[in-house]
Structure formats: C-alpha cells, structure tokens
Amino acid sequence: MIRNFLVKKVVRNNNFTLVLTLFVVLFVFQMINKNYLSLGNIRNILNQAFVMGTLSVGIGCLLICGKADLSSGAIGMMGGLIVTFLLNWGVPWPLAVLITLCAGAVMGSLNAFFTNVLNIMPFIATLGVSSVIAGLGQVFTNLQDIPIYNKSFWVLGSKNFFSTLPLPFLITMVLLLAYGIILKRTRFGRQIYMTGGNASAARLAGINPKKISTILYINSGAIATIAGILTASRMQTGSPTAVLSYNLDAITVGVLGGISFTGGTGSMSGVFIGILLFNSFKNGLVIAGLDSYYQPVASGILLIAALILDFYRERSRLKALRAHEKLG
C-alpha cells in the first residue's frame, strides 16, 4: 500500500519524467556514437551548458514570479564587454568582476523601472531594453571581438575539477542550489511564488508585488553578467555577440524544468535537470553528425515542446479545478 503510494508520488513528480527523458536521450545518443558519454564530451556538454544555465537562474525566478525577461542575454553580453574594458584598463580582476555585477544590477533595474513604474508589459519592456543594450554593444566595439590580456582572469573560465567539471558549470550549480534554497525555504522565496500565483491576492495579503519583481529584475541583471564574465574568461575575449542568443534557451530550460509560463510554480531542481536535458540533446545532434546549423532548429523545437508540456500541465490543473469547483 505504502509502496504503491510512493511509486505514484514519484511518477507524478515532474522531475521524475524529466530524469527519465534525460536517460533515454543519453542512451539513444550513446547508441549512435560511442564517444557521446566520454569524459571529454561530458565536459563539452557542461561547458556549453553554463551560459544558459546561469541565465536561467535569474530568468527562472522571474518566470516563477509571473514576469518575462528577454533582456538577460543582452545584459550578459554587455557584462562581458564591461569586464573586458575594465581588465584592459588594468583594473584587478576581482574588482572588475564586482563592478560588472553592479552594472548588471543597474541594467536590470531599467527593466524594473519600465515594468513597475511605467507599467509597460514585461515582454515588451525587456525586449526593448534588450535591443538597446545589444545595439550599444555593437556601437562600443564596432562589432569586433576584444582580446583580454589579464591571464589570472582566464582561470575563471578554464579551470576544471576532476577533469570533467568546468568551474563555470560549478558556479552555475552553486547558483542553482542557492536560489533553490531561497525559493523553497525563505520568506522572500515564498513571496515570489505567491506573487506569481496571483499578484492581486498576494497584494491584499500584505505582499508588495512590485517590490518583489523589482528585486528579481535587478537580481536577474546581475546574474546575467556572471554568465557574460564567465564567457569572456573562457573565450579570453569580450565579444558583442556572446551570450545574446542564450536568452531564449534559458527560458526554454526553465519551462522544460517545470516552471509554469503563467507563474507560481516550478523549482530550481527542475531547471537543473532541464539544463542537462536540453544540452545533452543539442550536443547529441552534433555528435550524431548533424550540421551545427540545425542547433537553432533544435532549440526552437525544444521550446515549443516545453510549452506544449506546460500547456498540458496547466490543463490538467484546470481540469482538477473544474472537477472540484463547477459541480454545483
């Protein structure tokens, strides 16, 4: 009886389905190419994963709060440029990183200003901010990559643990863990869920929804620059095109990981599995011999798949609601 109950609970758990899918993906590609699960390729997968992984922490929190963020990629890109300029001016790297994080927070606060003070729809506001920042990046660099000469800074992006775990991905994991705990165990985290679930009800229960989303936009900006800094360090260059394209991927892994597009549900553990699943799949396509031009196609398909999944999750929720509510 009890065992049955446990089995049911595990099976219904969204993360269980994701892990199962992940194993299927790993198994299928391993069958196609024996090198898929080699240490070297796992390191590859994780190295490709950290950018979207880091972005997804900030974006994920916003999604749970019911807010969209399309500007993280651009802010990350700008973060990479800022840290590059600072380093090349001779600023020591810890200070350069710190300043860049603050700059990210400032860029994030633009989103907060437009959405909370001017009441512009988050989707549009962040799209606008993204476009402006991405454009400025090109203006500052003339669309040229800028090499970084500070060698001690390179370590951030190139260090590996146990020869498979790159430092950037470790940082992603630490962020996921930290924000997972904040979401599930702290007052602020609970307020994020309640705001995302029903902002007007949360407001009447004494929460300030605008304050919550303001903090989250600033937070997302700062976290985005971490992705930019790590990318710059790994590439040893500041590039006006880096990180940009990962914004959509970060949303995809969030939704894939069980964050509802309408807000109020989801977890960082789900996002973590989403990141692994997404990148294993993308890498697998390359390993299987598909042209790399297919990668955006794969991303798009995964995003749509994630949204369909979200639609069905939401529908089963609505069904439960109807079954219990509308009998009378």
Partner: peptide, 17 residues
C-alpha cells in the same frame, strides 16, 4: 481572483501574511 493563490497549498495560503 483577489483572495487566494489557487495554485498553492492551503499552508502557503494561510501563512502568507
């Protein structure tokens, strides 16, 4: 619309304020 966060548990809804 204004009172409850329907997606969340009874516990979450009781402890919110």
């Amino acid at each position: 619309e204004q009172g409850l966060v329907l997606k969340r548990s009874i516990t979450d809804n009781v402890s919110i304020p």
